Computed example of a mutant assay.
Amino acid sequence: MTKSESSGSSGKNPFRPSSLRRKRRDAGGAAVFALCTYFILLCATFIFGRIAWDGVPVLFQTEAPFVNVEFLTENPKSLVVFHDEEGDEVRMDIDEFTEFKRDNPEAVITDEHSYSYSGGGIAGPLFGTAMLVIICMVVALFAGVASAIFLNEYARPGKVVNVIRLAIMNLAGVPSIVFGLFGFGVFCLWPWLPVLTYEPAEWAVASLRVPFTTGFLSFEGWGTSMIAGGFTLAIMVLPVIIAACEESLKAVPMGFREASLALGATKWQSIRTAVLPYAKPGILTASILGMTRVAGETAPIMFTAAVAQKAMLPHQEAKGQGVFWISDFLTQSVQALPYHIYTVAARIPQSEYNKPMQNGSVFVFMLLVMVFAALSIYLRGRYRKQLKW
């Protein structure tokens, strides 16, 4: 036995605590980690609990159907507060108040006050948020998955690919308001983006008549519209989707590709049949988490798509038929739930009369985020059980 072997066999374990002081230090470090963890959980519990405590009375009620359907199906309106002949306080939406005054011209109304965006419901913001997320994910998933496939499966490793990946990582750190300004300059103001319309705008740089119709393909830009907001959100979430999809593709064993190619499959056939099905759980998780992020963004849509007040939903205002109706629908401005929350919480005078709208909107938005997160966990677990190697 050599000298080094004898000394190694008789030496002490360097990782074994050799003193009571080191044991106490280790226990203290574990306690600090535990305190930090429980502090975060306590903060999250307090925040979610406060939102639920204030929002549940707005969304739910004690009588059938136990859900405040009007809050979910009506657009935001002004709330009128006044005192009647007996001195009782009465609250009405602006539409109800107008009808009440018309039907009761002799009614005594005193101390009348109006509060913007504090009546009605959140149907418009909910619909707008849904449309923005759908457009965003259609664009972002197609472009993001395609980019991840190219970078991981087709591109040769080298400086160019490293620079592209570095650019994607840097893009993920850009503030959302910068994406909003970019989307406003490109998708809202740039006039060379086409729309289908029956009457080209005065500022259109060119227009082409569509054969067999009375409409035109007009290059006049998208303006403040849901398609401009959707594309802006898609660009913002692309780095997250590309990175997550690429990691999912890397997790698939290389032997799957080699076996497929050895059987005579082309490169794309190998990717489509032997790689993408096994990367699907990660791709789905990335897409749903991306949906959760873009659903809560305010700055990008504030510049490109959202308005504070809108009497009708986009499909109610869209005109034309066929593809012309679709084009007019996509170029409508929309309300959005994050921007609506910002409006009622920061842009109007605060009072007890707009608190229910604030609390209900935040609670519904929290429920949407929780549903997206639960769906992500469920789909990831389901597909991982089906795909084993």
Rank of each mutant, 00 (worst) to 15 (best):
V139C: 11
W190E: 09
G360C: 10
W190N: 08
N13H: 07
W268Q: 05
P253I: 08
K267P: 04
F303A: 05
K250D: 09
I109K: 06
T343M: 12
E86W: 13
T214K: 14
V81N: 02
L261C: 08
F182T: 05
A52F: 12
V195Y: 00
G221W: 00
Y342E: 10
I135T: 10
W190R: 06
V58R: 04
W190M: 13
E112G: 04
S207Y: 14
P57Y: 01
V174M: 11
V369R: 06
P211R: 01
A148I: 15
E5H: 09
L20C: 05
V80C: 02
H113W: 05
K319L: 14
Y278A: 10
S351L: 04
P175D: 09
W268F: 14
F33G: 02
S9T: 07
I271P: 06
F184R: 01
T214W: 12
N152F: 00
I377F: 13
N354C: 13
L289V: 06
V294T: 07
P253T: 07
V252M: 01
S114A: 12
F127H: 08
I47P: 06
L387A: 12
P175V: 11
L196F: 15
F150K: 00
I177H: 08
F33Y: 09
S333A: 15
P281V: 09
I168F: 02
L208V: 14
N354D: 11
A206C: 12
V67S: 10
E86A: 15
E112Y: 03
V178L: 15
T285H: 06
G124A: 14
F46C: 10
R156G: 03
I326T: 11
S248H: 11
L284F: 12
Y353E: 09
M302S: 05
F127K: 05
K23Q: 11
A64Y: 12
L379T: 06
C43G: 07
P14D: 05
F150P: 08
P14M: 07
